[in-house]
Design a protein around this nucleic acid. Sequence first.
DNA 1: CCGACATATCAGCCGTTTCTGTTACGTTAC
DNA 2: GTAACGTAACAGAAACGGCTGATATGTCGG
Lengths: 122, 122
Amino acid sequence: MADAEFASPFALPESPAEPDLVAKYFRGLGDSTRVRILELLEAEGELSVTELVIAVGEAQSKVSNHLACLRWCGFVEGRRVGRQVRYRVADGRVSELLRLAQSLLAGNAEHVAACTRIEARC
Amino acid sequence: MADAEFASPFALPESPAEPDLVAKYFRGLGDSTRVRILELLEAEGELSVTELVIAVGEAQSKVSNHLACLRWCGFVEGRRVGRQVRYRVADGRVSELLRLAQSLLAGNAEHVAACTRIEARC
DNA sequence: CCGACATATCAGCCGTTTCTGTTACGTTAC
DNA sequence: GTAACGTAACAGAAACGGCTGATATGTCGG
């Protein structure tokens, strides 16, 4: 609710997305719990919320919140099976994104870890 | 400060980086100014800080801070030329990362834009 | 229908990130 | 050496993101 730019309702694949949107998208991956969830789903294929809660060892409400975010941004999708909702990675390119980042990180891990400049984490 | 996993001091390229580090890395891309800077550098090849300040239309100190972050995390590198410092994208995979995100975004742009769940932006 | 289970949502608080303006540092020109 | 230019660093204030705990929604069993 701040942007001066108007996003076309029909973004063409060719036209690069608004930097704003790209940044927001990356922020969707900018939380360690969300990354762990994605990695777990990638490894296991499909998991229920309860299974994820156990696997990551965090509060149910926390996991559920992060799932909502991931789902909303299109990183994962869930389907109801009885009382459970089972989640999986929504698109193979999401996995690519993660692998690419890890590959880059492999060479810079020390730098990134040590970076306390702008963001206490960066 | 919650993970039960122990980070090996010598992460192998094979072993996936710590989720913490991956998330931090993505956060490095989670700001629209930083994304704009990267896109500009990708398009122009190499730019000085002043040129970037003009191009993005933001305060010099803001741009410089973001450059510090990008440089620190290995997204860009700068070299001094006289009184100027000229920056460029440090690794082709960074561009890949951006393109991959934009490609994914092309299909989800509306969802992501509308997402006000956990992160007011997400 | 009621209780139990599985998941989602909400509100308030707190920590982190970012912005703004100012100041410090390095380099070149005079 | 001093002034001017280009860039980086810093501090305080403001905004945002995320956590916790409680509550709502939906589904199944009896």
